[in-house]
Design a protein around this nucleic acid. Sequence first.
DNA 1: CTGTTAGCGCTTTCAA
DNA 2: TTGAAAGCGCTAACAG
Lengths: 340, 340
Amino acid sequence: MANKATIQDIARAAGVSNQTVSRVLNNRPDVADATRQRVTDVIQQMGYRPSDMARGLRNKNTRTIGLIIPDSANPFFAEIAKGVETGCFDRGYGVILCNSAKVLERELIYLDLLQSKGADGIIFIATSTHIDHLYPLVESGVPVALFYRDAGNLNVDTFKIDNFQAGYMATTHLLELGHTRIACIRPSSDETPSGRRVDGHLHALEQAGIPADMALMPRGDNLIEGGEAATAALLASGDSFSAIFAANDAMAIGAMRSLRDSGRRVPDDVSVIGVDDIMLAKYVEPPLTTIAQPKQEAGLRAIEYLIERVEERYTGGPRETLLPIYLVERRSCAPYREEA
Amino acid sequence: MANKATIQDIARAAGVSNQTVSRVLNNRPDVADATRQRVTDVIQQMGYRPSDMARGLRNKNTRTIGLIIPDSANPFFAEIAKGVETGCFDRGYGVILCNSAKVLERELIYLDLLQSKGADGIIFIATSTHIDHLYPLVESGVPVALFYRDAGNLNVDTFKIDNFQAGYMATTHLLELGHTRIACIRPSSDETPSGRRVDGHLHALEQAGIPADMALMPRGDNLIEGGEAATAALLASGDSFSAIFAANDAMAIGAMRSLRDSGRRVPDDVSVIGVDDIMLAKYVEPPLTTIAQPKQEAGLRAIEYLIERVEERYTGGPRETLLPIYLVERRSCAPYREEA
DNA sequence: CTGTTAGCGCTTTCAA
DNA sequence: TTGAAAGCGCTAACAG
């Protein structure tokens, strides 16, 4: 239980003042080489680490950033989190992991905790579109980076993907494959950002001169089970279709499962496309064709911007970055064939 | 950029001393109700949060624990991490996420960072069996919980699964299904903890009076690709077998892929069983039968023990907890049939 | 029940 | 080139 050495201990052992040790610690030029060497040796030998806590108290920073995320065990968010962690590591920052579990109260509690811990900045991947609770924080001067949400009139950097474009790209891919009867598994609410994916889908259809058919547009709960249920309903209704666009990969995977259970083959009988490129997408059978977005890179970019603000290398207004998206062709989509 | 309010600001605004505010903050009984109320109101109104940093400096604690883990984006570890995070949240602790990426140097850097930040305790999921670098930390009095490794003579709590038992259970399952020619995909090294799974496998075989056949025991690299390659080699060798025990799920999934590519059906022609119950296991086709271990619960248990030490409610020697394991029957195993 | 004093480990003046 | 003193925000110890 030997208590950790302090700067005083080092000073005493090296026969200098604590101030001199501090200078060595911070690589100040105004220290005699001999002294510096001696101090360095003592530090080494005693395994001394300066206390970030004491430093922070003086300097008003903690070199710690908070990451508020719905669920770090969800592969999609896990990838973003990893990018954030990597970016922080490279800059000597620590990351406090906060799972909101999509519960507003947890977000609030974590926001408090991060404020108490003096987090230098916060990456926020919101649960809802409601971000009012960020106001006090942002106004107290804590830099924030916000994912997939509008910043309102807050001075924060946002990171989004063009959801409309994602839906448009996915549907266009199906169209180019010759499909015309395309079902669409919608998210539980059109108000969510991924609701815009459906708008993109509709736009692609319209542009191709294909009328939208509400009978082909069931809603899912954004999870695998929801995609499964929605597809089962679709199948039960008897309406014909040769392809499914699901508003996210989880529902697409559920759709494939439902299709298989009913004896349909993917992609021979029905093509399926999703959006997100979650980790599972690559491993399901057949591997899922989808619209991908760079997740780790997004985390990296967010940290870059955030720390620019933390270190006051950037002091301007809100910045919005649109993350690139791209089609990943795997094996769940095939050209339209008559008998389907 | 309004600077955050301090305890002094509250004291002044409420017309009391900072000490009284401190008492209110810490729910001390010796404060007049009227005073308490007044202070509470001011705190509320000014949106004041006490600084954990200043508190920590006094109290020598940070209510923060470090989680060193190979890869938070790996679903297996992600589940453990989530358990850790949940346990911390419930107790008002924060978690600093540290991905070691299986690189010793990163472990070292993070260990330093955690020490600097004054982490109250550390959960360590090691990269290698080499844990010497934990010595200084543990000796300086920081509680540590260690996963899947031996503690040596360190006073830390360890959390393991009985790997021998896991291998034994898996093979027994296959045996009970009537299989006698059982291949085994071994990990890259027998020295790793999962090497013991092979011992369990061998023991089950021996107990059933079946001689081990080295020709049926290729090695994989612990990843999907390794399982695929090992199985391909097995198939190429021409030796017959009706079931495969893979030392982990990733290799089992690779095995299934290889089997499918060669025209074999799982489980009709060959049964496959793994160990770990990684997230993918449930989603592959057919869903993989495997030996599961509770991952979130493991994280929860580890945090419980760790914080008992942090808060000095436990002051004894090392504790070893064996996490329960159990068979999860899905659809990759079937009774032995002659023609296989 | 409340206030004063001192000090946690560090860095920023200011002096020598 | 080095040291002494003050103070970051908080709480424990002691008075009153």
